[in-house]
Protein backbone atom coordinates (compact mmCIF):
# COMPACT_ATOMS: atom_id res chain seq x y z
CA UNK A 1 0.00 0.00 0.00
CA UNK A 2 1.27 3.48 -0.85
CA UNK A 3 1.96 5.82 2.00
CA UNK A 4 1.14 9.45 2.60
CA UNK A 5 2.19 11.68 5.44
CA UNK A 6 -0.43 13.16 7.73
CA UNK A 7 -0.14 16.25 9.91
CA UNK A 8 -2.85 16.99 12.45
CA UNK A 9 -2.32 20.48 13.77
CA UNK A 10 -3.92 22.13 16.75
CA UNK A 11 -6.06 25.20 15.94
CA UNK A 12 -3.75 28.01 14.77
CA UNK A 13 -3.85 31.68 13.70
CA UNK A 14 -4.60 32.38 10.05
CA UNK A 15 -1.13 33.54 9.08
CA UNK A 16 0.45 30.40 10.55
CA UNK A 17 -2.03 28.14 8.80
CA UNK A 18 -1.37 29.67 5.38
CA UNK A 19 2.39 29.76 5.99
CA UNK A 20 2.30 26.06 6.83
CA UNK A 21 0.36 25.12 3.70
CA UNK A 22 2.70 27.23 1.58
CA UNK A 23 5.76 25.68 3.24
CA UNK A 24 4.50 22.19 2.39
CA UNK A 25 4.02 23.22 -1.24
CA UNK A 26 7.43 24.91 -1.44
CA UNK A 27 9.23 21.96 0.16
CA UNK A 28 7.68 19.22 -1.97
CA UNK A 29 10.12 17.42 -4.25
CA UNK A 30 9.42 14.85 -6.99
CA UNK A 31 9.19 11.40 -5.42
CA UNK A 32 7.96 12.69 -2.07
CA UNK A 33 4.84 10.98 -0.76
CA UNK A 34 1.72 13.16 -0.63
CA UNK A 35 0.87 15.07 2.53
CA UNK A 36 -2.56 15.40 4.12
CA UNK A 37 -2.87 18.16 6.70
CA UNK A 38 -5.93 18.61 8.93
CA UNK A 39 -6.27 21.83 10.86
CA UNK A 40 -8.53 24.47 12.36
CA UNK A 41 -8.38 28.21 13.03
CA UNK A 42 -8.00 30.06 16.32
CA UNK A 43 -8.89 32.86 16.35
CA UNK A 44 -11.40 32.65 13.54
CA UNK A 45 -9.92 34.04 10.35
CA UNK A 46 -11.09 35.54 7.08
CA UNK A 47 -9.00 34.22 4.22
CA UNK A 48 -9.08 35.75 0.76
CA UNK A 49 -7.90 34.53 -2.61
CA UNK A 50 -4.52 35.04 -4.20
CA UNK A 51 -5.83 37.69 -6.56
CA UNK A 52 -8.22 39.41 -4.16
CA UNK A 53 -7.16 42.57 -2.36
CA UNK A 54 -6.86 43.16 1.35
CA UNK A 55 -8.60 46.49 0.78
CA UNK A 56 -11.80 44.68 -0.16
CA UNK A 57 -12.44 43.93 3.52
CA UNK A 58 -13.60 45.91 6.54
CA UNK A 59 -10.44 45.68 8.63
CA UNK A 60 -11.99 47.44 11.63
CA UNK A 61 -14.91 45.01 11.72
CA UNK A 62 -12.53 42.03 11.59
CA UNK A 63 -10.21 43.45 14.26
CA UNK A 64 -13.09 44.34 16.58
CA UNK A 65 -14.09 40.69 16.62
CA UNK A 66 -10.55 39.56 17.32
CA UNK A 67 -10.34 37.68 14.05
CA UNK A 68 -7.46 37.36 11.59
CA UNK A 69 -7.32 38.39 7.94
CA UNK A 70 -4.97 36.38 5.75
CA UNK A 71 -4.32 35.83 2.06
CA UNK A 72 -4.33 32.30 0.69
CA UNK A 73 -1.78 31.00 -1.83
CA UNK A 74 -4.75 29.58 -3.75
CA UNK A 75 -7.47 31.27 -5.76
CA UNK A 76 -11.13 31.77 -5.12
CA UNK A 77 -12.95 34.13 -2.85
CA UNK A 78 -13.25 34.99 0.81
CA UNK A 79 -14.16 32.57 3.59
CA UNK A 80 -14.63 33.10 7.31
CA UNK A 81 -12.95 30.06 8.82
CA UNK A 82 -14.99 29.48 11.96
CA UNK A 83 -16.87 26.27 12.67
CA UNK A 84 -15.24 24.04 10.09
CA UNK A 85 -12.79 21.25 9.41
CA UNK A 86 -10.01 22.31 7.10
CA UNK A 87 -7.90 19.98 4.99
CA UNK A 88 -4.96 20.47 2.71
CA UNK A 89 -3.31 18.04 0.35
CA UNK A 90 0.06 18.49 -1.33
CA UNK A 91 0.92 15.92 -3.96
CA UNK A 92 2.23 15.25 -7.44
CA UNK A 93 0.27 16.10 -10.57
CA UNK A 94 0.17 14.45 -13.00
CA UNK A 95 0.47 11.20 -11.07
CA UNK A 96 -1.19 7.78 -10.80
CA UNK A 97 -2.82 8.74 -7.50
CA UNK A 98 -4.27 12.08 -8.56
CA UNK A 99 -4.60 11.45 -12.29
CA UNK A 100 -3.39 13.41 -15.30
CA UNK A 101 -5.13 16.74 -14.88
CA UNK A 102 -6.51 19.46 -12.66
CA UNK A 103 -9.97 17.92 -13.07
CA UNK A 104 -8.80 14.45 -12.05
CA UNK A 105 -7.03 15.94 -9.05
CA UNK A 106 -10.22 17.53 -7.75
CA UNK A 107 -12.18 14.37 -8.40
CA UNK A 108 -9.62 12.17 -6.61
CA UNK A 109 -9.79 14.36 -3.49
CA UNK A 110 -13.57 14.62 -3.72
CA UNK A 111 -13.85 10.85 -3.30
CA UNK A 112 -12.78 10.78 0.37
CA UNK A 113 -14.67 14.02 1.07
CA UNK A 114 -17.90 12.57 -0.31
CA UNK A 115 -17.25 9.25 1.48
CA UNK A 116 -16.75 11.13 4.76
CA UNK A 117 -20.07 12.93 4.35
CA UNK A 118 -21.91 9.79 3.29
CA UNK A 119 -20.55 7.90 6.30
CA UNK A 120 -22.22 10.58 8.43
CA UNK A 121 -25.48 9.81 6.63
CA UNK A 122 -25.51 12.75 4.20
CA UNK A 123 -26.04 12.20 0.48
CA UNK A 124 -23.37 14.45 -0.99
CA UNK A 125 -23.15 15.38 -4.67
CA UNK A 126 -20.59 17.15 -6.84
CA UNK A 127 -21.72 20.38 -8.46
CA UNK A 128 -21.62 21.14 -12.17
CA UNK A 129 -19.98 24.56 -12.16
CA UNK A 130 -20.18 28.30 -12.10
CA UNK A 131 -19.27 30.92 -14.62
CA UNK A 132 -16.70 33.69 -14.74
CA UNK A 133 -19.15 36.31 -13.42
CA UNK A 134 -19.84 34.26 -10.27
CA UNK A 135 -16.12 33.89 -9.65
CA UNK A 136 -15.76 37.66 -9.47
CA UNK A 137 -18.09 37.83 -6.47
CA UNK A 138 -16.43 38.28 -3.09
CA UNK A 139 -17.94 35.44 -1.09
CA UNK A 140 -16.73 31.87 -1.63
CA UNK A 141 -19.62 29.93 -0.24
CA UNK A 142 -22.17 31.95 -2.22
CA UNK A 143 -21.76 29.75 -5.25
CA UNK A 144 -20.60 26.26 -6.07
CA UNK A 145 -17.86 25.85 -8.64
CA UNK A 146 -17.33 22.78 -10.74
CA UNK A 147 -16.12 19.93 -8.50
CA UNK A 148 -17.53 21.51 -5.33
CA UNK A 149 -19.52 19.33 -2.96
CA UNK A 150 -23.14 20.00 -2.09
CA UNK A 151 -25.85 18.32 -0.08
CA UNK A 152 -29.46 18.88 -1.11
CA UNK A 153 -28.26 21.52 -3.55
CA UNK A 154 -26.45 23.50 -0.83
CA UNK A 155 -22.71 23.93 -0.70
CA UNK A 156 -20.93 22.30 2.22
CA UNK A 157 -17.30 22.04 1.04
CA UNK A 158 -15.33 24.81 -0.65
CA UNK A 159 -11.90 24.00 -2.09
CA UNK A 160 -9.17 25.83 -3.95
CA UNK A 161 -6.00 24.76 -5.69
CA UNK A 162 -2.54 26.10 -6.47
CA UNK A 163 -0.58 24.36 -9.19
CA UNK A 164 3.11 24.49 -9.90
CA UNK A 165 5.39 22.42 -12.03
CA UNK A 166 4.54 18.82 -11.09
CA UNK A 167 2.90 19.58 -7.75
CA UNK A 168 -0.35 20.95 -6.40
CA UNK A 169 -1.71 22.27 -3.12
CA UNK A 170 -5.43 21.87 -2.60
CA UNK A 171 -7.08 23.04 0.56
CA UNK A 172 -10.69 23.25 1.53
CA UNK A 173 -13.23 23.92 4.24
CA UNK A 174 -15.94 21.52 5.38
CA UNK A 175 -18.67 23.50 7.12
CA UNK A 176 -19.54 22.16 10.57
CA UNK A 177 -21.55 25.13 11.85
CA UNK A 178 -23.18 28.33 10.48
CA UNK A 179 -20.74 30.96 11.78
CA UNK A 180 -19.05 31.22 8.36
CA UNK A 181 -21.98 33.43 7.34
CA UNK A 182 -20.65 36.15 9.66
CA UNK A 183 -18.21 36.81 6.81
CA UNK A 184 -20.71 39.33 5.50
CA UNK A 185 -20.02 41.52 8.54
CA UNK A 186 -16.40 41.72 7.35
CA UNK A 187 -17.24 43.10 3.92
CA UNK A 188 -18.21 46.65 3.03
CA UNK A 189 -21.86 46.63 1.84
CA UNK A 190 -20.84 47.15 -1.80
CA UNK A 191 -18.81 43.94 -1.67
CA UNK A 192 -21.61 41.73 -0.36
CA UNK A 193 -23.13 41.11 -3.78
CA UNK A 194 -26.61 41.83 -2.49
CA UNK A 195 -26.31 38.95 -0.07
CA UNK A 196 -27.33 38.94 3.58
CA UNK A 197 -26.61 36.36 6.28
CA UNK A 198 -29.88 34.48 5.73
CA UNK A 199 -29.26 34.47 2.01
CA UNK A 200 -25.83 32.92 2.47
CA UNK A 201 -27.19 30.34 4.90
CA UNK A 202 -29.92 29.49 2.38
CA UNK A 203 -27.37 28.39 -0.24
CA UNK A 204 -25.09 26.54 2.18
CA UNK A 205 -25.49 23.81 4.74
CA UNK A 206 -23.31 22.42 7.51
CA UNK A 207 -22.93 19.22 9.48
CA UNK A 208 -24.70 20.64 12.52
CA UNK A 209 -27.77 21.70 10.60
CA UNK A 210 -27.85 18.38 8.76
CA UNK A 211 -27.73 16.50 12.05
CA UNK A 212 -30.29 18.76 13.65
CA UNK A 213 -27.94 19.61 16.52
CA UNK A 214 -24.78 21.73 16.62
CA UNK A 215 -21.45 19.94 16.92
CA UNK A 216 -19.70 20.54 20.21
CA UNK A 217 -16.00 21.37 20.44
CA UNK A 218 -15.35 17.92 21.90
CA UNK A 219 -16.71 16.26 18.74
CA UNK A 220 -14.26 17.81 16.26
CA UNK A 221 -11.51 15.29 17.02
CA UNK A 222 -13.83 12.44 16.05
CA UNK A 223 -14.80 14.23 12.82
CA UNK A 224 -11.11 14.71 11.98
CA UNK A 225 -10.46 11.04 12.66
CA UNK A 226 -13.30 10.06 10.35
CA UNK A 227 -12.01 12.40 7.65
CA UNK A 228 -8.49 10.97 7.87
CA UNK A 229 -9.91 7.44 7.66
CA UNK A 230 -11.89 8.37 4.56
CA UNK A 231 -8.74 9.70 2.87
CA UNK A 232 -6.86 6.51 3.71
CA UNK A 233 -9.64 4.20 2.55
CA UNK A 234 -10.70 5.98 -0.64
CA UNK A 235 -7.20 6.78 -1.88
CA UNK A 236 -5.73 3.45 -0.75
CA UNK A 237 -3.11 5.08 1.43
CA UNK A 238 -1.42 4.27 4.67
CA UNK A 239 -1.27 7.55 6.57
CA UNK A 240 1.96 7.99 8.50
CA UNK A 241 1.97 10.81 11.08
CA UNK A 242 4.82 13.26 10.59
CA UNK A 243 6.02 16.21 12.68
CA UNK A 244 7.09 19.60 11.36
CA UNK A 245 10.59 19.01 12.71
CA UNK A 246 10.85 15.76 10.72
CA UNK A 247 9.96 17.69 7.57
CA UNK A 248 12.68 20.22 8.34
CA UNK A 249 10.03 22.92 8.27
CA UNK A 250 9.82 23.85 11.93
CA UNK A 251 11.14 27.36 11.25
CA UNK A 252 8.90 28.19 8.31
CA UNK A 253 5.82 26.77 9.97
CA UNK A 254 5.94 28.63 13.27
Amino acid sequence: MATARIIRDLPLPGAVNMRRDTALLDAWRPGDPPILRLYRWRPYAVSYGFHQRSGDFDHAAIASRGWDLVQRPTGGRAILHAEELTYSVVGPSPSPLFGPSLHSCYMAINEPLVAFLRALGHEAEISGGEDRREQRQAVCFKSAGQHEIRIGGRKIVGSAQRRREGVFLQHGSILVGPRHADLLDCLPPRRRGGLDRDGLLAVTTDLGRLRGAPYQESEYADLEERLASAFAARLGLELVPVAWTELGLADQSA
Partner: peptide
Protein backbone atom coordinates in the same frame (compact mmCIF):
# COMPACT_ATOMS: atom_id res chain seq x y z
CA UNK B 1 0.18 33.43 -12.32
CA UNK B 2 -3.12 32.61 -13.91
CA UNK B 3 -6.27 32.23 -11.85
CA UNK B 4 -9.32 30.40 -13.13
CA UNK B 5 -12.52 29.32 -11.48
CA UNK B 6 -10.68 26.13 -10.52
CA UNK B 7 -7.09 26.96 -9.60
CA UNK B 8 -4.17 29.35 -9.54
CA UNK B 9 -1.38 28.13 -11.81
CA UNK B 10 2.10 29.53 -12.18
Amino acid sequence: SIESVKAVAD
